[in-house]
Design a binder for these strands. Structure first.
Lengths: 214, 214
DNA sequence: ACCTGAACACCGTTCAAGT
DNA sequence: ACCTGAACACCGTTCAAGT
């Protein structure tokens, strides 16, 4: 921790923002999105907040869309890390349950950030390499878990990609509805992840259910 | 067809837009969103497109957010109708499969409109009564289907609301990922609905699967 | 290289005024 | 009631100029 003027962001006396401005812009954008939502993010204000001209940003990002793409990339990185942590905390098949819960928890804890990742802010066609890599990384964490479960004979022998897509869609859908407040009265966000994983593994059909570890 | 100047939209000679302007504004908004996306929707342009002042809209909608909420309401109405149609076309338990497929089809056919319905454009707290009614209507179509299947012993005896939430989340998640282009290479949008319903009913666990109609 | 300040072409929204 | 046109306070982005 280097000594630093606490009011550096407010006073315009300091002319240049030496240091990692790109990083600072990105952090400020994430913070603003968290507190104000995506639609509350303006390039002018995050510049002002950092005590920097409103065009300084263009030295580090092509435009606003590029900044949002960087925010999304950051989100996938954080999500991936939390999935790994949850999976590692509980070893074995139980890790699958924990991953699902961690996924929904991330979305509910960071709704606006999550929306930037999936809300159509980044054009799939012009998606950059870094975002693709980071997104694939999080996805692969799930694929790895599923193939491990397949090896143990706990998950049906199906194309892992297709299976992972389905599982991802399920937790993604639950997370989205929870964020949107579209879950009906009486369906608690806390109970949902557990119920989700139960139905995910056992299906909705009638008859005896068998959990993955059974 | 009354005789009408074809260039009425361009020339300011015709002063008033008699007729249902609210309806016209809504239709124009939906059309613009379809062709340009939500971020391409400007109140000024849809006014111009209708040969009307850019502030005329405020006689019919409180603001842009209110217009978007009306667009979302319209979307839920259309979705509900298509779900009913699919369910009716195939009678019995097969109606469930068709509903799932119809849901994903609707989202993929109207990606931008679908995003307005679920993309956080309408604040859950200030959500109007009409939107809530229309959304609940579509949801209830699913609840009804599930309770019917429960009566036939084809779906597990669980809280229908919770069950419906789960099923909705699954198709919603699949639809969202498909729209976002986040489905991995080789996972076709056509095959996905069928696979979704299969995994939905049977689960992802290993062992013999039994379809709902079995 | 990195940052600035003025300028441009857009927005949504308000409001007094017209019919 | 319904619509208009000017005006206001905002945007993102460009660009010549500064260090």
């Amino acid at each position: 921790m280097a000594t630093r003027s606490q009011s550096a962001a407010r006073k315009p006396a300091r002319r240049y923002h030496h240091g990692n401005l790109r990083r600072a812009l990105l952090d400020e954008a994430v913070a603003t999105i968290r507190s104000e939502g995506v639609e509350g993010l303006t390039l002018r204000e995050i510049g002002a907040r950092l005590g920097v001209s409103r065009t300084a940003l263009y030295r580090h990002f092509a435009d606003k869309a590029a900044l949002l793409e960087a925010v999304a990339t950051e989100g996938f990185r954080a999500l991936h890390q939390q999935l790994d942590a949850a999976c590692q905390a509980a070893g074995g098949p139980a890790g699958f349950d924990e991953m699902g819960a961690a996924y929904v928890r991330f979305a509910v804890a960071n709704p606006s950030h999550y929306r930037v990742m999936f809300g159509g802010f980044v054009d799939p066609d012009t998606r950059g390499a870094e975002l693709a890599t980071e997104g694939a990384g999080a996805f692969n964490a799930l694929v790895d878990m599923l193939t491990a479960l397949q090896r143990d004979g706990l998950v049906r022998d199906d194309d892992p990609m297709l299976l992972a897509s389905f599982v991802w869609a399920v937790v993604h859908g639950v997370a989205m509805l929870a964020i949107d407040g579209q879950l009906p009265e009486g369906v608690s966000v806390e109970a949902l992840p557990r119920h989700t994983v139960e139905r995910l593994t056992g299906g909705i059909g009638a008859g005896r259910q068998r959990p993955l570890r059974g």
